[in-house]
Design a protein around this nucleic acid. Structure first.
Length: 469
RNA sequence: GCUCCCAUCGUCUAGAGGCCUAGGACACAGCCCUCUCAAGGCUGGUACGAGGGUUCGAAUCCCUCUGGGAGCGCCA
């Protein structure tokens, strides 16, 4: 069996959104599950909209997600370059080949003429498509237009009476009558190759065997198939993924401020969490439980891709984030939490704190309150919590203070001492203690929390609680 | 306008004519566990867009409608 070669072909005109990331992940997984190769090709044929910062940004996001490519703009394997802007000579050769075979022809129509034709067709209820004006131009007519100073675009001559068929990886057999589209431009008047063309040619030239892409490309596929056929190039198999919608139900876009992969990363979402979520968006067959990033490919099956658009739901992402955070080793947790930890804390304390808090955090930003508990001022008490303190009473906290002098950070001993002094037990001891020491009624185990709070703070807080009635 | 695609709980989905009084996960509610939160365990509510067919029988097949989306560019 031939090895599977897949690719992700980002256009660097913005940030990577979850939808693109999902397409990239699925493509990557498709290659990996068969031991094949995964390529990244930058589709920057539109220089105007492309930015180097977007190239770097998107590549960084892919790497962060754990997708490592075998060849790409930074790693040529002999079939590159992997940026379309550097492949002009290759496209030129292909254009010459098509022209020589009379499978493409120069078109001198002006934008105004094309627009007029389009309007007329629309008015008649016909699909707008190129009427073929320049298809039959002879050498003389062409020379005359050149003399007028017109610069031609190059159009592909779509064969008459052709039905294009292909078997879509996710949608099954597809059939389109070539009559449904007119001759289309493959090289603009300024000499630049259009996306359509580069995309299809590059996939073939780079040995790509399976293309997974958004289903906005579905109806363009027959055109690319025709092009490849005319070029004598092998066509990959195509699979079209439904678009990813925002929770609100509209397609993701930067205009609407859809979240970007970069933003998720900056907020502290873990790559494994994002990957686990993406794996289950518009795809079934993965187990209900967490899948280790290294095992992801085993659970991906293109035959189990859905056909309906899926919604990106932040609540579900959070579920995988929680799973992911819980699985962090103390050292990893410390690294993850680093942005939220005081810079002057020694490594041991950072690791200890991260280990202490990781079961109660979703994102590093939530650690701020706990950092204060461990080293600074407590937030004001909620009224229900203040009531618990008042209920416990002055005597309780004075006893606790005395008990603490003997027990130190050993909670079991502290509780025992308090029990001996006050006769209380269980919840009546732990609850007021927790609130007095942390200012809140939720959080990690008290037994772990207590030794992490400096003794001076413990004494101050117990003394303070003793004064609340 | 034309062509094409899609349609099951709030969300992700299982379901390829009887196994479906529609299953799972997330979220939500309750209970258990527990010093608390989280985790875990148990329980619960919530869905086949509408209407017509076909059939002994339809979430599953067909048609219409509705609702969403895409494409028809010298954009990618």
């Amino acid at each position: 069996m031939e090895p599977t070669v897949t690719r992700f072909a980002p256009s660097p005109s913005g940030a990577l959104h979850p939808g693109n990331a999902r397409t990239a992940l699925f493509s990557f997984l498709l290659a990996r599950r068969s031991g094949g190769r995964f390529l990244v090709r930058v589709e920057d044929s539109d220089r105007e909209r492309s930015g180097e910062e977007f190239v770097a940004g998107q590549l960084a996001d892919l790497a962060w997600l754990g997708l490592d490519w075998d060849a790409g703009p930074d790693r040529d394997d002999g079939r590159g370059p992997y940026r379309q802007s550097e492949r002009a000579a290759i496209y030129a050769r292909l254009f010459a080949q098509l022209e020589a075979a009379r499978l493409a022809y120069p078109c001198y129509c002006s934008p105004a003429e094309l627009d007029a034709a389009r309007r007329a067709q629309l008015a008649k209820g016909e699909p707008p498509r190129y009427p073929g004006t320049c298809r039959q131009l002879d050498a003389g007519a062409r020379a005359a237009r050149e003399a007028e100073g017109r610069r031609p675009a190059l159009r592909f001559a779509v064969p008459e009476r052709r039905v294009v068929r292909f078997d879509d990886l996710v949608r099954g057999p597809q059939e389109t009558d070539a009559a449904a589209f007119g001759d289309f431009v493959i090289r603009r008047a300024d000499g630049a190759a259009v996306f359509f063309f580069c995309n299809a040619a590059d996939d073939s030239l780079m040995g790509v065997t399976h293309v997974l892409r958004g289903d906005d490309h579905l109806s363009n596929t027959p055109r690319q198939l025709l092009l490849l056929e005319a070029l004598g190039l092998a066509a990959p198999r195509y699979g079209h993924l439904p678009l990813l919608l925002d929770a609100g139900g509209v397609p993701q876009s930067k205009r609407r401020g859809s979240v970007t992969v970069r933003q998720l990363r900056e907020r502290g979402y873990l790559p494994g969490a994002v990957a686990n979520y993406l794996l289950r968006l518009g795809h079934h067959g993965a187990p209900d439980a967490w899948v280790e990033p290294t095992e992801l490919a085993r659970h991906f099956d293109p035959g189990k891709l859905g056909r309906a658009p899926a919604h990106f739901d932040p609540v579900q992402l959070d579920h995988w984030q929680r799973e992911s955070v819980r699985r962090l080793s103390p050292a990893q947790a410390a690294e993850w939490l680093a942005p939220a930890l005081p810079a002057d804390w020694p490594a041991a304390r950072r690791v200890e704190t991260a280990r202490l808090l990781q079961g109660n955090l979703l994102l590093p930003a939530e650690a701020a309150g706990w950092i204060a508990v461990l080293s600074g001022e407590l937030a004001p008490l909620a009224s229900e919590d203040a009531a618990v303190i008042a209920q416990a009473g002055t005597e309780f906290f004075e006893s606790a203070l005395a008990a603490f002098a003997e027990s130190g950070g050993d909670l079991a001993r502290l509780a025992e001492q308090i029990r001996v002094r006050t006769g209380r037990k269980g919840r009546d001891i732990y609850q007021p203690l927790r609130i007095a020491l942390t200012g809140r009624h939720d959080g990690p185990e008290l037994a772990a929390l207590l030794p992490a709070i400096p003794p001076a703070l413990v004494r101050a807080r117990l003394a303070h609680a003793a004064r609340i009635h």
